[in-house]
Nucleic acid binder design. Structure first.
Lengths: 226, 226
DNA sequence: AAACGTAATTATGAATTCATAATTCAGTCA
DNA sequence: TGACTGAATTATGAATTCATAATTACGTTT
């Protein structure tokens, strides 16, 4: 009998890790804010034990910070931390690009082509929402196509840490156009399965994205300081 | 008043994470083995609560595997997993090499030179123990010199996962000589702070190490099967 | 004797309880 | 009035307790 659909009743703490991480990534819990242990227990209808287990895991993933006897706070995403994180993400994306060219199935390529077309269409309509969605799909699909779950896991963690920043990224027209060009170049290399070059482009693409975010952040903080 | 030496009394579960991880990495707890919750509690003199919190963290780091209602087992390090892990480590080492050339202090360089000399000396005496130690020091120092704690953290996790394999690696004479050559090449680039090339060499060095391990493993399993 | 089913035991997940560190707040004194 | 002291309150870390799932042991049946 083949696994119909293995009945998975995840344990409470696993469920909680998922849901709490979403609260952080989705920005329902704001950076620096205290994680209200008691209220979360009540709203989830669980006792403190599994919730605290989940907090320990979230802390080891870097989403929250534990202070002994002083509870948990949502980790701040500082400029310094972004400076450390983006290069690592970029390096992983490079590897993903290389592996994807070796490992991707025809179905993978087809799917990525489709999402790429959708992304370009969204760009032409200046439809930010669908652009972001398609963009994210493409990056995820490329990671997946690399068929390396260790890579995928570490990438997901790091990407989660900076997701908030990506959300608020209101990209400039120039950067938007440049991003599209970079994606076109990526598709070109992916089609001929040139992993080395695709990897290089993906890495550079991520670093450009990073630089654009930093410029936007600096501009913002200057504006608010004036 | 400047922090004299902030009194850090780590919480029990933090302490436990450290010590349990060491048990796994140092191979005191063997892969596939059940993690004896009760006995560990007794030997550490703590209750189940902090120990189980620690287990959750170890699981999220991939060192152990939790099965609902069936306890924890030490994660197996399968061939498939090594195939996934080494390329990621290699990619991170490449980044480390690049950053180290930008960020390393003179003290860093001096320290690495010293450890390199010690490693070569150990090689000439065919002193495996000191060779391994110096080798590990060099890799760690290069990572540290990159001054990127996100990179360092992820590298440490991944390296921990495969440490066991590295231990049992009884490297061949040819591979040993080749490794020394690669290290010489690394030092050459580090001295002139050529990050791009150092990164490439470090990545390739790690992949060669991986290939050597795989050959050794295959040879071993063939031998035991015959 | 082997295989199945059932009861007893054990181990696990989660709730609760307990001890103590941190915080709040009231009262005192400068 | 404002800063400091110390009691009261709250929150946190850890131990204990409880309910239940999993495993083992045992007896029955073929």
């Amino acid at each position: 009998m083949n696994q119909i659909e293995s009945i998975k009743r995840p344990t409470l703490h696993e469920e909680l890790v998922e849901r709490l991480r979403n609260l952080v990534v989705e920005d329902a819990l704001k950076p620096g804010e205290k994680v209200p242990e008691k209220e979360l227990c009540e709203s989830f209808g669980v006792s403190r034990t599994p919730l605290r287990e989940a907090l320990k895991v979230l802390a080891s993933e870097g989403f929250i910070v534990l202070q002994a006897n002083r509870g948990a706070r949502v980790a701040e995403v500082t400029r310094a931390e972004l400076d450390k994180t983006f290069p690592v993400i970029a390096a992983l994306e490079q590897l993903a690009g290389e592996l994807a060219c070796q490992q991707a199935t025809d179905a993978d390529l087809k799917h990525i082509e489709a999402r790429h077309a959708a992304m370009v269409a969204a760009y032409q309509k200046r439809d930010r929402k669908n652009y972001f969605q398609a963009n994210q799909d493409i990056h995820l699909a490329l990671i997946r196509a690399a068929r390396n779950d260790v890579l995928e896991g570490h990438h997901r963690l790091l990407a989660g840490r900076v997701r908030r920043v990506r959300f608020m990224a209101n990209l400039s027209d120039e950067r938007w156009a440049q991003a599209i060009e970079e994606h076109e170049a990526m598709m070109k290399e992916l089609r001929v399965r040139n992993g080395t070059v695709l990897g290089q482009i993906m890495r550079q693409h991520m670093m450009n994205k990073y630089a654009a975010h930093m410029r936007a952040m600096d501009a913002n903080s200057e504006a608010s300081e004036s």
